[in-house]
Design a protein around this nucleic acid. Structure first.
Length: 258
DNA sequence: GTTGAGCGTT
C-alpha cells in the first residue's frame, strides 16, 4: 500500500505534480491517496520527511497522470479538511531537481548541463538557496529556527559529549548563527589556514600561566555555552558515580582537566 | 507528546 516514494520517482515524464500544503504531520501518503485518487489517476505520492527524525514536513506531492484531473483535484481538495486540518492543494512550482514546472507539468525534462556546473550551485545540499531567497523576500520564520535548532541540537549534543570541558571550540567563535559546514569548511580550512595565519598563530602570552586568572571574573566561554544551562551543576560532579566514567589506567590523563 | 511557512525522494 505504501509503496509511494519507496522506489524513487517512477516517471515524471508526463505527470502533473501537485503540492499539498498544510497537512498534518501525521498524514501519510496512504491517507492522501484515496482522497486524490478519487478525482483522478494518481501516479505517485511523495511526502518529504526529515532526515534526522523522519517526521513529515507537513506537505506532500501528488502526481497525477492528467492535467485535467490534477486541476480538478486542486479545485476540489484545495481547502478540504484532512485529519482536522485544512490542506492546501496547488500545482507544484518546482521539480525534484529544481526544474521549472508549469501547471504541475515539468516544462524542461532535464536541466541540460550546458556548462556542467555553472549556473547551478552544487555547494548547497538541499534547498538552502531556495529557502534563503524566500526567506529574504518574506519575513522571519519560526519554522526555520526550529529546523536549525533541531539540527544543531543533535550536533551540539554530540559535540558537547565529546568535549565537555575541553578548550573552547572555534566553531563558537565562527558564529553558530548559521553553521552548516561539512566539506566546504574542510576544503576551505586549508585556504584559510595559509591565507590568514594571524588566526592560527597562538598568542605569545601562552607562556604565562597566569593568563588564565580572570581578573574580571567573567568567563564568556562557559557562559556563552548555549544559554540553556548556564549552571555547571548539570555535570553533577558530585552526584556522578565513579563507575560512570570508565577509567582505564590513567584516571588523571584521560579524565577532565577541569 | 510540541511545531505550521513552504516546493520533492530510490
Amino acid at each position: 500500500m505504501s509503496h509511494f516514494g519507496r522506489s524513487g520517482p517512477p516517471d515524471i515524464s508526463d505527470t502533473y505534480s501537485l503540492l499539498v500544503l498544510n497537512i498534518t504531520f501525521r498524514t501519510t501518503a496512504d491517507d492522501l491517496f484515496p482522497l486524490f485518487d478519487k478525482y483522478g489517476k494518481v501516479v505517485d505520492i511523495f511526502i518529504p520527511r526529515d532526515r534526522r527524525t523522519g517526521d513529515s514536513r507537513g506537505f506532500a506531492f501528488v502526481r497525477y497522470k492528467y492535467a485535467d484531473e490534477a486541476q480538478k483535484a486542486v479545485d476540489r481538495l484545495d481547502g478540504r479538511v484532512v485529519d482536522g486540518r485544512e490542506i492546501t492543494v496547488q500545482f507544484a512550482k518546482y521539480g525534484p531537481n529544481a526544474e521549472r514546472i508549469h501547471k504541475g507539468r515539468i516544462i524542461e525534462p532535464v536541466p541540460r548541463s550546458r556548462h556542467k556546473s555553472r549556473s547551478r550551485s552544487p555547494r548547497r545540499r538541499y534547498r538552502d538557496d531556495n529557502r534563503d531567497r524566500d526567506h529574504r523576500r518574506k519575513s522571519h520564520s519560526r519554522s526555520l529556527d526550529r529546523y536549525d535548532r533541531d539540527r544543531y541540537r543533535g550536533r551540539d549534543k554530540d559535540n558537547r559529549r565529546r568535549s565537555r570541558s575541553r578548550s573552547a571550540s572555534p566553531d563558537y567563535s565562527r558564529g553558530r548563527g548559521r553553521g552548516r559546514y561539512d566539506d566546504e569548511r574542510r576544503s576551505s580550512s586549508r585556504s584559510v589556514d595559509s591565507a590568514s595565519p594571524v588566526r592560527r598563530s597562538p598568542s605569545p602570552r601562552s607562556s604565562s600561566p597566569r593568563k588564565n586568572s580572570p581578573s574580571k571574573g567573567e568567563s564568556p566561554d562557559r557562559r556563552s555555552r548555549d544559554g540553556r544551562s548556564p549552571t555547571p551543576r548539570s555535570a553533577s560532579p558530585r552526584g556522578r558515580p565513579a563507575a560512570s566514567r570508565s577509567r582505564s589506567a590513567s584516571p588523571r590523563n584521560s579524565d577532565v582537566d577541569e
